[in-house]
């Protein structure tokens, strides 16, 4: 706390930004947050929060499988999340898979994660326990420059794809029957979106951890939906709120080292959601 409070804010900010680990966190974090906000809006609109939840557990199992096999953690992360995302989309057939099927499957995948954890910790040093915690709860201050840049590029690519399919996806999400009649490839968009969601979960896991992905995905999007019913404005707002939570969370965790950054980021996102709910509660009926 002293670092920011002792000096004036500008100097404090400058000293914070001079730290390479903070810069990496901001570069990677901003891109990841923007992507999460964007994807999160559709997740909430399509009622696929539970599928996203399942994918975050898949991310954990995938990352630990890669660690146990001794390869780059991100391979396992993305392979597992994108693969299972596609699978959920294809199994669901009519757009969304059954909650029970999702729950059953991800409960088992988590069991696999425990197996990989046992394999990994049995074979390695004490660092391995820390790696496990990082996968579960993230370590945005531990991201290397290369990892941050890669994460930012992947996020940029995913954002571009999502913007390209945004309009048909919105149509298919709100009114699948009419969209299908008008020639929107509804059956293609469902699995494609879940694959994008999977990749997003993989990205966000690197920042806030597999278990806390939801703070970035659901909270800003749900807050934005409470503030406006205009879909395009809500999309922009979700992105802005997610990025804001990321920046403020990083700054807060830097200023108060006792607080882990994953907690501050997710906590602030949840606070945004609570604030939006309160605001909406006070200003009923809805303005437009």
């Amino acid at each position: 706390m002293t670092a920011l409070l002792a000096a004036d804010p500008v100097t404090g900010l400058a000293s914070m930004l001079s730290q390479p680990f903070v810069r990496n966190a901001l570069v990677g974090g901003t891109a990841i947050a923007a992507l999460s906000g964007l994807v999160g809006y559709f997740v909430v609109l399509r009622g696929q929060v539970f599928a996203g939840d399942a994918l975050s557990h898949v991310a954990y199992a995938g990352a630990l499988a890669a660690l146990a096999a001794g390869i780059d953690l991100r391979f396992g992360l993305f392979a597992a999340t994108i693969g299972v995302g596609l699978l959920l989309g294809l199994l669901g057939g009519r757009g969304t898979a059954d909650d029970v099927v999702i729950g059953t499957t991800f409960a088992w995948v988590l069991g696999l994660g425990v197996l990989f954890l046992a394999l990994y910790t049995a074979s390695g040093s004490t660092d391995n326990g820390v790696a496990n915690v990082n996968v579960l709860f993230g370590s945005i201050f531990g991201i290397s420059t290369a990892a941050a840049t890669t994460a930012a590029w992947i996020a940029a690519g995913l954002i571009a794809v999502l913007l390209l399919i945004a309009r048909p996806l919105l149509f298919a999400s709100v009114d699948p029957t009419v969209a299908a009649a008008r020639g929107v490839p509804v059956r293609l968009l469902g699995p494609l979106f879940l694959a994008i969601l999977g990749a997003t979960v993989g990205e966000a896991s690197q920042a806030v951890g597999a278990l806390l992905v939801f703070g970035l995905l659901a909270a800003p999007a749900a807050a934005a939906q409470r503030l406006t019913a205009d879909p395009w404005r809500a999309l922009g707002l979700a992105v802005a709120l997610a990025v804001l939570a990321m920046w403020a969370g990083v700054a807060l965790a830097y200023a108060a080292p006792a607080l882990p950054p994953s907690f501050t980021i997710v906590g602030l996102a949840a606070a945004e959601f609570a604030a939006a709910t309160l605001y909406r509660g006070l200003l009923r009926p809805l303005p437009t």
Partner: peptide, 14 residues
Amino acid sequence: DVVRMGWDGDRWGV
């Protein structure tokens, strides 16, 4: 927005 989807909701992009 629902009405507007009938106009161009099937077109790619935003």
